[in-house]
Each structure stands twice: as structure tokens, then as C-alpha cells.
């Protein structure tokens, strides 16, 4: 019963992203609490369902950190991610760690290498409105002189 309510609550608070507007969210409070304490709340729409499954199956080894969760929250978040995930190949993971930043789409948009001293995981370094889920072009501030290397 509790799980159904949580699922309903999660579903109720997630409006669909509008293609082309680059604005995502708002996300359910549980997702933000648990998954945006160490990094920006990554939009679930930018990785496929199998990709999110891989992430959620390895939370204790989460890109070098322990991000483990209690089973109740883990299940609620996994369900939310599965429901909101992308079904497009361009967002699929291309390696075992399922990094969103190595999907074909991400590499095409950003190149394979971030600017010096910046990690791709730190979206807000250039996407100044990322905390609000807004990745639109007019809120981007690139480091001086950086040019993304376009994938051939």
C-alpha cells in the first residue's frame, strides 16, 4: 500500500519534458534528496532504462563512491527512473559503468573531453541553471577559449 502511494506520488509530480526546450523536472522529493546531494539531479530522460538499471544495481560502487540506499527508497527511485527513462538508442550506455556522459548523444553534444579541471559530472560548471533543471543554451557559460571537439 505504502509502495503504491509512493509510486503514485512520484508519478504525480513528474511532468513530461518538452523536446527541444532543454528544461527538465521538477523531480520527486525522494529523487532530489537521495540523488542530488552529491551532484545535480540528472534528468532521467537522458539515459535508457537498462542504463538506469545498471546504475541502481551498483550503488555501493557508484563511480568511486558508496551511494547505497535503504531498500524502500531504492525501489521507489528505481521505479521512477524506469518510468522516466529514455527509449532512444542515442541515450543508451556505451560501457559497463553506464555513464550518461558517454552515451552517443552526450559525446555528440559535448565532445569526449571536458574543459580543464572540470568534470562532465559537474553540469553546473557550464550549465548555470542546471540546479533548476534548465540546460537551455542561453544559460550556458563556457570557460574562455574552450571548444568542444566534435565527434566525427
Amino acid at each position: 500500500m505504502k509502495k503504491t502511494l509512493i509510486l503514485l506520488a512520484l508519478a504525480a509530480t513528474t511532468p513530461p519534458a518538452v523536446a527541444g526546450k532543454h528544461a527538465y523536472g521538477p523531480f520527486p522529493a525522494t529523487y532530489v534528496d537521495e540523488c542530488a546531494s552529491c551532484h545535480v539531479a540528472y534528468p532521467p530522460q537522458l539515459l535508457t532504462a537498462p542504463g538506469w538499471q545498471q546504475v541502481m544495481a551498483q550503488l555501493d560502487k557508484h563511480y568511486g563512491s558508496d551511494a547505497s540506499l535503504d531498500p524502500k527508497r531504492r525501489t521507489a527511485i528505481a521505479d521512477f527512473l524506469q518510468q522516466s527513462a529514455s527509449n532512444r538508442d542515442k541515450h543508451a550506455p556505451t560501457e559497463a559503468s553506464a555513464r550518461m556522459t558517454r552515451s552517443h548523444w552526450f559525446v555528440r553534444e559535448h565532445g569526449p573531453t571536458p574543459p580543464a579541471k572540470i568534470a562532465f559530472a559537474d553540469c553546473a560548471a557550464c550549465h548555470t541553471a542546471a540546479e533548476r533543471g534548465d540546460y537551455s543554451e542561453n544559460s550556458i557559460k563556457l570557460p574562455a577559449g574552450w571548444r568542444r571537439i566534435k565527434e566525427k
Partner: peptide, 11 residues
């Protein structure tokens, strides 16, 4: 929806 959300959060 808001009732469901409030109930879930309260739980």
C-alpha cells in the same frame, strides 16, 4: 494527486 503525494510524504 496532491492528496496522494501528501499521504506518501507523511508515511
Amino acid at each position: 494527486n496532491r492528496l496522494a503525494l501528501a499521504a506518501a510524504l507523511a508515511l
